Simulated scan of single mutants.
Amino acid sequence: MIFLTIGALFMATGLEIFLVPNHVIDGGVTGISIMLSHITGWKLGIFLFLLNLPFVYLGYKQFGKTFALSTIYGIIMLSIFATFFHPIPPFTEDLLLATIFGGIFIGVGVGLVIRNGGALDGTEVLSIVITRKTPLSLGQIIMFINVFILGSAGFVYSWDRAMYSILAYVVAAKAIDIVVAGMEGSKSVWIISDEATEIGNAITNRLGRGVTYLAGEGAFTGNDKKVIFCVITRLEESKLTGIIEDIDPSAFLAIGDISEVRGGRFKKKNIH
């Protein structure tokens, strides 16, 4: 609940302190609610609650009662913080700065809530359902949905505000992916060394990661080589390079990002 509250606080800050006062909207149900509130003059909180109800039910059916209650709590806290922040003047009237920092605050807030088993917007619930069935990331799916919603801001405000709104969510989508993956983002590691066995044992004993030895052959020398393959998290990258530096500074090392890891004994925190 602490992280759900912090996430709602960050999103409310991005909305009321940066975006909404500069007529740059958020995406998803929140963006639709902002535009309907602007058109009708009704309270923003009314639309946030009513329009999110169907998606809360979807979350309940797909993920259970805990997810639904977490989402309801997050939306209520978002409404409270947004109401509290509404009278506060914006930190900046520079559109570019407001767009970038508003997107960052929203992305961090949304990411924190998703990582801790809830959602702040109905489209996030829908995106979590979709991402289970496709190789796309949460940020990519949310951005795809919001391009259409944010584009409609051109009819309500102006077309330059619509473009700034899309830019804000590009920033937010990237921030969501970073926070959801966190420092646990996976990396693949390939190591070629004459001390492969010692390095492999050190990785297993000091990092607790399993390694796989592959048979390789140098194309130039024709010599047989033992190749180490393993998967680590971002937090473990510096430890791994330190291990290799200690054992064989001349070892060949290649590290790459991995979008998804399944099976085996690789353990990674689940976002739900």
Rank of each mutant, 00 (worst) to 15 (best):
K174M: 07
G111I: 10
N116Q: 13
Y169I: 05
A162Q: 09
Y169T: 03
A168S: 15
D160Q: 14
Y169H: 14
I149Y: 12
R161V: 02
V171T: 14
T131D: 01
K133E: 06
K187P: 06
D177E: 10
E184C: 01
G117R: 12
S152E: 04
D177L: 09
I128E: 06
K174L: 10
F144W: 03
D121R: 00
V125A: 04
A153V: 07
T131M: 14
D160V: 06
T123P: 01
I191M: 06
A162M: 12
Y169Q: 12
K133A: 08
I191E: 08
D160Y: 07
V189H: 05
R132N: 12
Q140R: 14
G182E: 11
I130K: 00
F144P: 00
G185C: 01
G154V: 11
S186R: 11
G151I: 12
W159Y: 15
A175V: 04
A119W: 03
L120P: 09
W159H: 12
V113W: 04
P135L: 05
V147H: 02
K187H: 13
G109M: 07
I130N: 01
Y169V: 03
A168V: 11
I141C: 05
V170A: 13
V110T: 12
N116M: 05
N116P: 05
A153C: 12
A173M: 08
G109A: 07
A162V: 10
V180A: 05
I142L: 15
A168Q: 11
I166N: 07
I192Y: 05
K187V: 08
R115Y: 05
S158M: 02
I145V: 08
G151R: 11
S158H: 13
G109V: 05
L150Y: 11
G111E: 07
A119K: 04
L150I: 09
S137I: 02
G182Y: 10
E184K: 13
G151W: 10
D177V: 06
M143G: 01
R132M: 11
R132K: 15
G185Q: 14
L138S: 02
I166V: 15
T134G: 06
A173T: 08
V179E: 04
S127H: 02
D194H: 13
S158K: 12
F155I: 15
S158V: 03
Y164W: 14
A172V: 11
M183G: 15
Y164E: 07
G185V: 09
V156T: 14
A119I: 06
M183L: 14
T131G: 00
G122F: 00
Y169G: 02
K133G: 02
L150F: 10
K187L: 13
A181R: 11
A162W: 07
G118Y: 01
L136R: 04
Q140P: 00
V129H: 04
I192M: 14
M183C: 01
W190D: 03
V156C: 10
V179D: 06
T131N: 10
G109I: 04
I166P: 08
L120T: 15
T123S: 14
W190S: 12
K187F: 04
V189K: 02
K133P: 02
E124G: 00
Q140C: 00
R132V: 01
A119Q: 06
V170M: 14
G118S: 10
S137E: 07
I178H: 04
I178N: 09
I128Q: 13
S137V: 04
V156A: 13
G122N: 02
G122D: 01
I192S: 07
L120Y: 01
I142V: 15
K174V: 08
E124T: 00
V189N: 07
I176L: 09
A181S: 14
